[in-house]
Simulated assay, not measured.
Amino acid sequence: MGYVSGSRDAGGSPRRTHPQPTVGHIGGPVAVVVAIALWLVLGAAGARAEQALRLGFALAQGSPHDTFAETFREELGRLTAGSLQVENYCCFKLGGDQELVRKLQLGTLDATIVAQNNVGPFFPKIDLLSLPYILRDHEHAVRVLDGPVGQQLWGDMPEVAGVHVITIAYIAFRHIFNTQRPIATQADFEQLKYRVPRNAVMVDTYKAFGADPVPLAWSETLTAVQTGTVDGGDLPVDVIYSQRFHEVAKHLALTGHFAMTPAFLVSDRFMRGLSASEHTAVYAAARVAAAAARAQVTSREATILDVLASDHGVGITRPDKTPFIAAASTVKQTFAAQRGSEYDALIKAIHDVE
């Protein structure tokens, strides 16, 4: 960001101007002070005119994360007439999910898009969204996340963690992929070794389902599947496809046991530096970006399933969810008992949303 230092001649030196007799002439040290003050004011205005928001995320180009980020970039630039410019960094360029959240807290990054399970270590209340079958379907999820219950979940996050949840970028249900065999029943599921995120709720869920999970960072997941360290894991269909898991894992079971609800996070430090109109523009641009990313997820899922089956030889099963849902209820009960009455009340509030 450059500073405007006043008028200069062709050689780059300040132009000399003669004092106007009707105004009077300020000379000596006072003139120097005035010149410096003008330089600072004009410089600050010039810098403000092109403030950058650095947004980092882990998923690849073409993913729903990328759709959100690019739409947000375009919309925020339009709403602010270019005064806020978004710089997007995909594909682990600035680190993995939890590292990105830490950078927000440190002030070395302005924004990120991170799955809620990777936000939990910094703000435990959001772990509620990682509970199995806590969100019944897409419509229920929208009403929970975009309504008053969502604000109950993360309204105090700026004070607690120094980070704002601007919106939930999209909603996508996670399904089980593996390299070994079709999963038609819970008994089939129990025989395999799965990668899970480093999140206590998700680890406990897989144990309740009868598996012995292997907690791994997202950045290690594809390699672990390729090398046989694990047999599989779970991801939304769009992410399985955009991250190329289908190239190694040829079995997909549509269980929808977790909802992936990536939060669009902006640091409190960045938000406090905005004007009122810029603050409004950030939220407005995020709503437009979320609509685009959510539309991508919902409109493409059926198409991607067809492509995975017909073009890539992925076998797709639809196991009975009843035993999984029964096991999930014990996870929720244990979670509420461990976390206390506030969490119990929030679980009830989520369930009560029609």
Rank of each mutant, 00 (worst) to 15 (best):
M1W: 03
Y3H: 10
A10V: 13
R15E: 13
H18Y: 06
H25A: 15
G27S: 14
G27L: 08
V34R: 14
L38D: 04
W39Y: 06
W39A: 12
L40F: 10
L40T: 10
A44N: 07
G46V: 02
R48Q: 13
A49I: 00
Q51C: 00
R54W: 01
F57K: 15
L59P: 00
P64G: 03
H65Q: 11
H65E: 11
T67L: 05
E74N: 02
T80S: 07
S83Q: 11
E87F: 01
C90A: 15
G96P: 05
E99R: 14
L100A: 07
R102Y: 02
R102S: 14
L104V: 10
L104I: 09
Q105V: 04
Q105K: 14
L106P: 00
L106Q: 14
I113G: 08
N117A: 09
N117P: 02
P121C: 11
F123T: 05
P124K: 13
I126P: 04
L128G: 02
L128Y: 03
L131W: 04
P132E: 08
R136A: 11
D137T: 01
H138S: 09
H138V: 10
E139D: 14
L145V: 12
D146W: 08
Q151S: 13
L153G: 01
M157K: 10
E159I: 04
E159H: 07
H164S: 08
V165S: 06
I168D: 02
Y170G: 10
I171F: 03
F173G: 07
H175E: 02
T179K: 13
R181N: 10
F189A: 01
F189Q: 04
E190W: 09
L192Q: 08
R195H: 11
N199H: 10
D204I: 03
D204A: 10
T205E: 05
A208V: 09
G210T: 05
G210D: 05
W218K: 01
S219E: 13
T221Y: 11
Q226G: 06
T227A: 03
G228M: 07
T229L: 15
T229K: 13
V230I: 14
D234E: 09
V239C: 03
V239L: 11
R244M: 03
H246V: 01
H246D: 05
E247N: 10
A253I: 09
L254W: 08
T255K: 02
T255D: 00
F258K: 02
M260I: 00
A263E: 06
A263Y: 04
R269P: 00
F270D: 04
F270W: 12
F270Y: 13
G273E: 08
G273Q: 11
L274F: 03
A276M: 09
V282A: 06
V282N: 06
A284W: 02
R287M: 09
A291T: 05
A292D: 04
A293H: 09
Q296E: 11
T298P: 01
R300V: 00
R300D: 14
E301F: 06
A302W: 02
T303Y: 10
T303K: 13
V307S: 09
A309V: 01
H312E: 00
G315T: 15
P319H: 05
D320Y: 10
D320K: 12
K321E: 12
A326R: 13
A326M: 06
K332R: 14
Q333N: 13
F335Y: 12
A336Y: 01
R339P: 00
D344A: 15
L346S: 07
D352R: 11
V353Q: 08
